[in-house]
Design a protein around this nucleic acid. Structure first.
Length: 840
RNA sequence: GCCGAAGUGGCGGAAUGGCAGACGCGUCGGUCUCAAAAACCGAUGGGCUUCGGCCCGUGUGGGUUCGACUCCCACCUUCGGCACCA
């Protein structure tokens, strides 16, 4: 079990060959010890978290997994350090809630159903069963009484209920809109799920479809979502969310066609309005059809068809030459009544702003390129302070600051500090030709999915009454279990008669149900609240529990959720607050993103690459505690990196050293005379270790935390040689060692604790305290530099005065040699750090 | 193209203005052993050395400072995000 581990390059097969190795295994049998304590903890319900407690609360959540079947090492990397941090908080006197659940709706279950003829429900529940077992084998302190499984009616009923509340509060609505369609997944996707024109999940190329879908009004909260002042989140995530929301300030201005159709544009540069020499509409713009003249119709239709065939990647590539066609119509510029031609071009996107722009080629590079391409006129309306611009001579647009020119009574207005922009907006507003506007890049959240395995949207369609919400008392709308799975591309709900056909809740006439289900990101938007009361029947969240526990103090998970889950859950929290269900503004006070463990080949782990590390195998061979410690030791937690099986040997050795020194000295500890210096050194090492290990655990620096414990063990071996075992402090040191290991190696720590004769359980003990005075050395080896180069080291008191230190340094032969007959120009002395004598 | 993070021995990494390389892997030497493994002890950035030491060294080039892996400027490389966003 515990012998030498030989890893070949592509197969990791442990070899515990010799008889000696097998006999040692009897001494520390990880598997027996771990199983014993897991069972004892469970029987004692050690990790059940009381709602009522004298202790201050600490609510820690790590992102729940999708029940794909097996925990992979990435799950361990996410959960193990979170668990250690939660345990550490518990030892520091907090009432810590650390729950776990399963993100159980989603496409893989449906694919498994089609491919292997297993019902999504049974497939999912069997996977959950297995993953729960694996998580237990990890030795985590999850409170399983609070488990949440999102595919059970107990949970998704409240998705439906929340959907109905969102409707009441005008936060959910149905609209026909161009939406992204994934042909592979046979469903629409939210904007966030489309990455470079591909489906986030299957990488198929997505296309646009006009469909009637359900949306959540996340854009209502755009401004509040841009405020991160009350939360302590990584800059990276904050920046990604800011970019995603994409706020820009500017003006909405109404141009008009010659037939007087209003054409709205959004611009961030209203100060350049007088330089608009043409307009460009997106090919999909609704007015294109109407405004195109007969002579241009054929060209326009060809272009629109061509643009539609372009993939999103081709269309948005900045490398492309500008393409477009004149539609034959003209618009009137509202600021100077000038007649300007209207073009369509694919560089104008229907999905941003109004889908139409005023083109100012002199001051916008894209418009400039377009004007050059099609020989359109260019007019300078912003001039640099100290030179003139000649439109004829320009080789690129001038987007910088300057002074307004050719702009009627605004001539001479400087553009710096937004002065020109705000003056023009003010004027547009007075003249009713436009108004100031803030535009956002992101859109409302599309939540409909044309899939079976999700929360049914609680809506009924009635010929007489229209779209009717299912009454709250009729919830949940149950997902039928006997649906037929055929790879038709149609939701099985459409062909399930007893689900599909129903009666109108309003008039009682025959009616049909909505067959779309909710995006699974709806489930994960509020699961952290359901943990508090997974079986509460009067609402999604018990207000008393919410007041007790919320907000979540620490959330941990992968960076890949920066703009989806983490934005949606912030929106949900604010929406639930406004509905009166919560009284917090933000779900997660602190956020931490762990890194990714790669395969041995430094590539992302995947079955097809064959570089996957199976945690079950590792636990069998090494025990959970070794895997836990190694994952923490491998690198800083936010960094991750390649899995190197050879490195485990160091952790193996460390654990064995901990084990044997405890085993060999526990009984003899404190039963003799000890040298006072040795005892003092033991105390110092102990107190210093307690301090730095605690500091590192508190700041998630798990790799150095393990290194500190290794240093401590090395110290103990040295001190043993010097007779330290005879000191009564020795026993304190062994007990503290066990306590310091408790967060990261819970089974080993528990076993040591008992072998030291202490009572069940170490996980109810407080973190050991330390004496600050013992953590600092009173003498120190001070480096003496001459002109910045170390020339000698002298032993000084930590708080020695400068004069005495210089005197001592100058007494050194080596220092004298370096100084020679040169004069001392300057002395820099940092007590305990350095003495630098500048000579010359 | 824009924004951000990172670049340190053979390898994972430590040190965030004060002795670069903690801790660990690997390697080498020693103790034990018939032998090997394990365990334990020691060495381990490079070059030179008269064995006292000396010089060089944290992606590259400059700068600030008594002193820079750390701060500033420019560049190179890698990774991540955004990208015709009006």
């Amino acid at each position: 079990m515990f012998g030498r581990i030989c890893f070949s390059i592509d197969r990791r097969i442990p070899v515990s060959s010799t008889a000696e190795a097998r006999s040692r295994a009897k001494q520390y049998d990880a598997s027996a010890i771990e199983q014993k304590w897991q069972q004892a903890w469970e029987e004692a319900q050690l990790y059940r978290t009381p709602d009522e407690s004298e202790r201050p609360k600490w609510y820690a959540v790590t992102m729940y997994p999708y029940p794909s079947g097996d925990l992979h090492i990435g799950h361990w990397y996410a959960m193990v350090p979170s668990d250690a941090a939660a345990r550490f908080k518990r030892m520091n006197g907090y009432n810590v809630l650390f729950p776990m659940g399963f993100d159980a709706f989603g496409l893989p279950a449906e694919n498994a159903a089609i491919q292997r003829n297993i019902h999504p429900h049974s497939w999912t529940m069997a996977n959950i069963e297995n993953m729960r077992r694996q998580m237990r084998s990890m030795g985590t302190m999850f409170d399983w009484d609070r488990e949440v499984i999102t595919c059970l009616p107990d949970y998704y009923k409240w998705n439906q209920w929340l959907f109905l509340q969102f409707m009441k509060h005008d936060l959910a609505y149905q609209a026909k809109a161009p939406v992204w369609w994934c042909p592979q997944c046979q469903t629409v996707l939210a904007n966030e799920q489309v990455i470079e024109g591909e489906c986030e999940r299957c990488h198929s190329e997505v296309s646009r479809r006009d469909l009637t879908q359900w949306f959540f009004r996340i854009t209502n909260y755009a401004e509040e979502l841009l405020d991160f002042t009350t939360i302590d989140w990584p800059d990276r995530v904050v920046t990604m969310q800011r970019n995603w929301i994409g706020r820009s300030e500017g003006a909405r201005v109404t141009f008009r066609s010659e037939q007087d159709d209003p054409i709205e544009v959004f611009t961030t540069r209203p100060d350049t309005l007088w330089g608009a020499t043409f307009m460009v509409l997106a090919p999909e713009h609704p007015l294109v059809e109407k405004l195109t003249t007969d002579s241009q119709r054929e060209d326009v239709e060809n272009y629109v068809a061509w643009a539609r065939r372009q993939t999103e990647i081709q269309r948005t590539s900045t490398e492309n030459d500008k393409t477009g066609v004149f539609i034959g119509a003209y618009a009137v510029n509202p600021v100077n009544d000038e007649r300007i031609p209207i073009w369509i071009a694919d560089y104008v996107l229907m999905g941003y702003g109004t889908g139409a722009i005023m083109a100012v080629p002199a001051h916008d590079q894209r418009d400039f390129e377009f004007a050059k391409q099609f020989d359109l006129s260019i007019r300078v309306v912003i001039k640099p302070e100290d030179e003139d611009l000649d439109a004829e001579m320009m080789t690129e647009a001038y987007p910088d600051e300057g002074v307004m020119v050719n702009s009627a009574h605004f001539d001479g207005t400087p553009t710096a500090d937004g002065e020109a922009v705000s003056k023009v907006i003010e004027w547009l507003d007075e003249q009713e030709r436009g108004r100031g506007e803030i535009n956002y890049r992101f859109h409302d959240w599309l939540v409909s999915r044309q899939r079976y395995w999700g929360t049914p949207i609680p809506i009924v369609y009635c010929d007489a009454c229209g779209t009717v919400p299912v009454p709250e008392e009729d919830l949940p709308v149950l997902l039928p279990e006997d649906a037929e799975f055929k790879p038709t591309g149609e939701s099985p709900l459409k062909t399930h008669e007893s689900f599909f056909n129903t009666t109108c809740p309003s008039c009682g006439a025959a009616a049909t149900r909505e067959t779309d289900t909710l995006d699974t990101f709806v489930d994960s938007s509020w699961y952290q609240y359901r943990y508090l009361n997974p079986h509460y029947e009067d609402g999604p969240v018990d207000p008393e529990k919410a007041a007790e526990w919320l907000p979540v103090d620490q959330y941990t998970g992968g960076i890949e959720h920066a703009t989806m889950h983490l934005l949606y859950t912030r929106f949900f929290t604010k929406a639930m607050r406004d509905i009166g269900l919560l009284n917090i503004d933000e779900p997660f006070t602190r956020l931490y993103n762990q890194g990714i463990i790669l395969g041995e080949d430094s590539e992302k782990m995947s079955k097809s690459r064959g570089n996957v590390v199976d945690p079950d195998e590792l636990v069998d061979e090494l025990g959970a505690d070794l895997v836990r410690l190694y994952l923490m030791f491998i690198a800083p937690w936010d960094q991750g990196g390649p899995w190197n099986p050879r490195g485990i040997a160091g952790i193996d050795r460390f654990v064995r050293r901990v084990w044997s020194i405890t085993d060999e000295t526990a009984d003899a500890a404190g039963d003799g005379d000890v040298d006072a210096d040795v005892e003092q050194d033991l105390k110092k090492s102990l107190h210093k270790t307690i301090k730095v290990v605690g500091d590192d655990l508190g700041s998630f620096e798990f790799n150095t935390m393990v290194a500190r414990l290794m240093e401590f063990i090395n110290d103990l071996y040295q001190l043993r040689e010097r007779g330290a075992v005879a000191s009564p402090v020795w026993r304190e040191a062994l007990e503290s060692l066990a306590l310091m290991l408790a967060p990261s190696a819970p089974h080993l720590a528990e076993e040591l604790w008992h072998r030291l004769g202490r009572e069940f359980s170490i996980h109810q003990q407080a973190w050991p305290s330390y004496d600050e005075a013992l953590t600092v050395e009173d003498t120190v080896e001070l480096a003496v530099q001459i002109n910045g180069k170390v020339r000698d080291r002298i032993e000084t008191a930590i708080d020695a005065g400068e004069e005495a230190v210089v005197q001592q340094a100058m007494a050194s032969e080596r220092v004298q040699e370096s100084v020679g007959d040169k004069q001392i120009r300057k002395v820099i002395y940092v007590p305990g750090r350095i003495l630098n004598i500048v000579v010359g």
